[in-house]
């Protein structure tokens, strides 16, 4: 068996995934990056998007949507601190669309900088979520 990456996905509420995998693809702030064993040490922020977990080199075994966070990569492991994580097939499309709509309204009503940036973030998250559920 080839070397594996110890992949961990943690949200503030719980440890979601902790397993050895062949490869993970993480949506980094500046583009997706794949993590294979012996990857160079890296700390990156994560944008809203889908993490693909490859149990073997060929097949995607799991696709998880994350709403941003941070990733820490060392030669042996890959840790993703996610703010919100749900498997792609469990995304509630209707709910996401509703929230997107709400967020757009919030953005329109936003009075200060903070409310505006929060609403903009929410929109980015929900848009990515809907896109993920389509793919």
């Amino acid at each position: 068996m080839a070397e594996m990456v110890a992949f961990e996905l943690v949200s503030p509420e719980e440890l979601l995934i902790s397993e050895d995998v062949a490869m993970v693809v993480v949506p980094g702030e500046e583009g997706d990056f794949g993590v294979l064993p012996r990857h160079a040490p890296l700390i990156s922020s994560v944008r809203p998007g889908v993490i693909s977990v490859y149990q073997t080199r060929q097949a995607v075994t799991e696709r998880i949507f994350v709403a941003g966070g941070f990733a820490e990569v060392t030669p042996e492991r890959c840790t993703v601190l996610a703010e919100l994580a749900i498997p792609v097939d469990k995304i509630d499309r209707a709910d996401a669309e509703q929230r997107l709509k709400d967020a757009r309204e919030d953005l329109a009503d936003a009075k200060d900088e903070l409310a505006r940036s929060l609403a903009a973030r929410e929109i980015a998250i929900r848009e990515a979520m809907i896109k993920a559920s389509e793919a």
């Binding site: 980094g28 500046e30 040490p41 890296l42 700390i43 990156s44 922020s45 941070f70």
Partner: peptide
């Protein structure tokens, strides 16, 4: 570590 984006940004 490599940082992506810049260290201060992270």
């Amino acid at each position: 570590y490599d940082f992506e984006p810049e260290q201060e940004d992270i």
